[in-house]
Write a protein that binds this DNA or RNA. Structure first.
Lengths: 217, 217
DNA sequence: TCGATCCGTGACGAACCGTCAACTTTTGCG
DNA sequence: CGCAAAAGTTGACGGTTCGTCACGGATCGA
């Protein structure tokens, strides 16, 4: 107590070297996996392909992830963890059903269209097989949506309806329209959001018209 | 040339034995695959598991299907081929947008809830991984839907809107709500159809109310 | 009845998986 | 500093699945 605290201080402001290397390696592997998945698709990729894209040895992979599926889940989780607070905040500040719906779709489509995610990794086999992994983090996102729907109904923002179906409908439209949007030359998150929002608020007959082929030729 | 057509007639009303065996074997393998996929999920199943569930040898599998993915596609195709004409017919006889939308959803949900398909095979790994294979047959189903949407718009059943997005929205709601429906104790295709139809026709505020907890306490 | 053709068979080589004993680096402590 | 314990890395290994292929038996056409 009285003499001197014997400077146990060699602690750098950052972590120890071992911990630092672990974080680096994990990131190294995650980055490699993203690249490999985007390039050849989830199905065709092997754990060896991923590790070959790093300077590490094959056994090391398994110190960080149990399998190809688990690292894919980790990548999905990064996305889920990034978008969930954005969606939640948007819905929290909504006071009308219009804000609730439009905020949800606008945030979702903008996130998907942003370069924050590589959409090929999400769809991740551009050809025929689409794998969707529902990790706890992803499921938590769905649960939050249903909670928020129920809260909004309780607050009288709209009449009580089947929350499970409504959640499913919102999620289905979000995912499928996002996919359609990303197939276009230049994705238009705003347009997709307007479409989805108006569909939910007023139904098909209130959707913005799309002008037909130019009349003048 | 001129003498007599030498009765090439030993043709039975059905096909030759070879052809018959081939059809049998193919069906044998398909049935086994359905069972195996339903039991242990697509990811965990191996080609050997499937062939072990038949009296055939391992090599024979590859005379009929190139891989596990291909046989899964074949199973999906059976479903797609079964439901597509039903959907098409329903949409063909629609004269109003109400009939178009409600016919589509009702037919889809009833088909899913019927025992004509094993829904576990479609979702087919109940736990975390969902694989969706977009085979040509499946894609053709989407194309038909978009065609029919465009035809309906041309006929003035509703104003011209973005057909890609509308198709995506219908498909997204159909698949996700179907999944939600099938998670219930007793699936209610009629209820799901009413929900989806009303969502598309009038928007969220016109959905049938779900009575809240009994008001009288 | 007899060749030609087709198809089922199961063993085989290749590829990938996940593990593990040996080795290297880091850490804690005198 | 030096040393022993702890932690992490390495790559080779046994086990499993994959897809092929040479063989042999069944079917077909004449």
């Amino acid at each position: 107590m009285d003499t001197a605290i014997p400077t146990p201080a060699p602690r750098r402001n950052s972590a120890g070297k071992r911990e630092q290397t672990k974080a680096q390696n994990r990131q190294l592997i995650l980055d490699a996996a993203r690249g490999v998945f985007a390039e050849m698709g989830y199905g065709a990729a092997t754990v060896r392909d991923i590790i070959r894209a790093t300077p590490l040895a094959s056994g090391t992979f398994y110190n960080y992830f149990k399998s190809k599926e688990e690292i894919y889940q980790a990548i999905r989780d990064e996305v889920a963890l990034a978008i969930r607070p954005l969606l939640r905040e948007e819905r929290m500040k909504a006071t009308t059903v219009e804000e609730f719906i439009s905020g949800t779709f606008r945030t979702f489509f903008e996130f998907v269209a942003s370069d924050r995610i590589d959409f090929r990794t999400i769809r991740h086999s551009a050809d025929t097989t689409r794998v969707r992994v529902d990790t706890p983090e992803v499921i938590a996102g769905f649960d939050e949506l249903r909670e928020d729907i129920e809260t909004a109904m309780a607050r009288g923002m709209f009449a009580p309806v089947d929350a499970d179906y409504l959640m499913a409908a919102i999620a289905g439209v979000a995912f499928e329209v996002a996919e359609s949007m990303m197939r276009r030359e230049v994705p238009d998150p705003a347009g997709a959001a307007v479409f989805a929002t108006q569909l939910f608020l007023g139904g098909i007959r209130t959707l913005p018209h799309k002008r037909a082929a130019a009349p003048g030729g």
